[in-house]
């Protein structure tokens, strides 16, 4: 089949593509534009490795402080790190609570049967997409303005963004279920609720749990960053040390973040593989 097609093409070269010349011109134009834009970007971003080397030399003082972390602030940092993890936890739980019920309304296989179902499906999908489009950083800035500096705006920002992410992942795993058991529950005389609760939920529960843990993991890292815009936790503290040029304290914070994030990362990976094997 492919061979026939290929030989056919060879017999009638370019006959089927009268716009080949124009297409070629466009290709060249797009290619050259991309190269030109990249060159411009190098200039605009002042990309210069030499500058980095020079900077490193002048940062000797900073480096000498960084290699001597100040362990006296460890108790305070631990408390703030804990706050960061808690922010991520509450934000993720909030997201799970909202996206769990909504995700069923955003699953094609459950909703496309009726006109009303289609409308609800489209609306919930839209909500998820919009929420995902808002970066947590932007949301955090907004909420800091609304409710003031502290961990609460961070929780709200993480929560809302995660609703979009989890909702999408949850509803996609609902769409991937085996319809057989669902039909069996129907045939047993199950009502609509039972069909969802006994036919769909057991099939998606492990995936839902894995996605949730993964999201918490991501949110811990994100909440450190959110601190920098005033949304509490260790990030906020880190920003203050940077502003006050207290590099040995910055160093302690960095080390702590590195250890905690790595530990939680592998813990969540381990948990998720356990779920996968179950």
């Amino acid at each position: 089949m492919t061979v026939e097609k290929a030989s056919g093409m060879a017999l009638h070269p370019r006959v089927e593509r009268p716009y080949a010349r124009t297409a070629n011109l466009i290709k060249w134009f797009v290619g050259l534009s991309l190269v030109a834009y990249t060159a411009l970007a190098v200039v605009h971003t002042e990309f210069n490795p030499l500058k980095l080397l020079a900077g490193a030399a002048s940062a000797k003082e900073i480096l000498s402080e960084i290699v001597r972390p100040d362990w006296s602030i460890l108790p305070l940092l631990l408390k703030l790190m804990n706050e960061t993890v808690e922010m991520a936890l509450i934000g993720t739980l909030l997201a799970i609570l909202i996206s769990f019920p909504l995700s069923f309304l955003a699953a094609k296989n459950l909703m496309l049967g009726t006109v009303a179902g289609r409308v609800v499906y489209a609306m919930v999908r839209l909500i998820f997409n919009v929420l995902r489009a808002f970066e947590p950083m932007l949301l955090a800035l907004l909420f800091v303005l609304m409710v003031g500096i502290g961990p609460f705006p961070g929780v709200l920002a993480l929560g809302l963004h995660s609703v979009g992410m989890l909702g999408k992942l949850f509803s996609e795993s609902i769409e991937a279920i085996d319809p057989g058991p669902v039909e069996a529950i129907q045939a047993c005389g199950g009502n609509r609720f039972q069909v969802i609760w006994y036919g769909v939920l057991p099939q998606v529960a492990p995936t839902f749990l894995a996605f949730s843990i993964y999201r918490w993991d991501i949110n811990i890292r994100m909440s450190i960053i959110l601190g920098i815009v005033g949304a509490g936790g260790i990030g906020y503290c880190l920003l203050q040390y940077l502003n006050l040029l207290q590099y040995s304290k910055v160093s302690t914070a960095f080390i702590l973040i590195l250890i905690v994030v790595t530990a939680l990362d592998s813990a969540s990976a381990w948990l998720r593989t356990r779920l996968g094997q179950r």
């Binding site: 058991p181 069996a184 045939a187 047993c188």
Partner: peptide, 30 residues
């Protein structure tokens, strides 16, 4: 009707993640 008429499927249509007994209990849903 479905309470009084039970069905058995070619691909069994069990819920693999649930225990054997839970699967049998599905027959009591109605």
């Amino acid at each position: 009707l479905r309470r009084k008429i039970a069905m058995i499927f070619q691909h069994f249509n069990l819920i693999g993640n649930l225990s054997v007994l839970s699967n049998v209990l599905m027959g009591r849903l109605s």
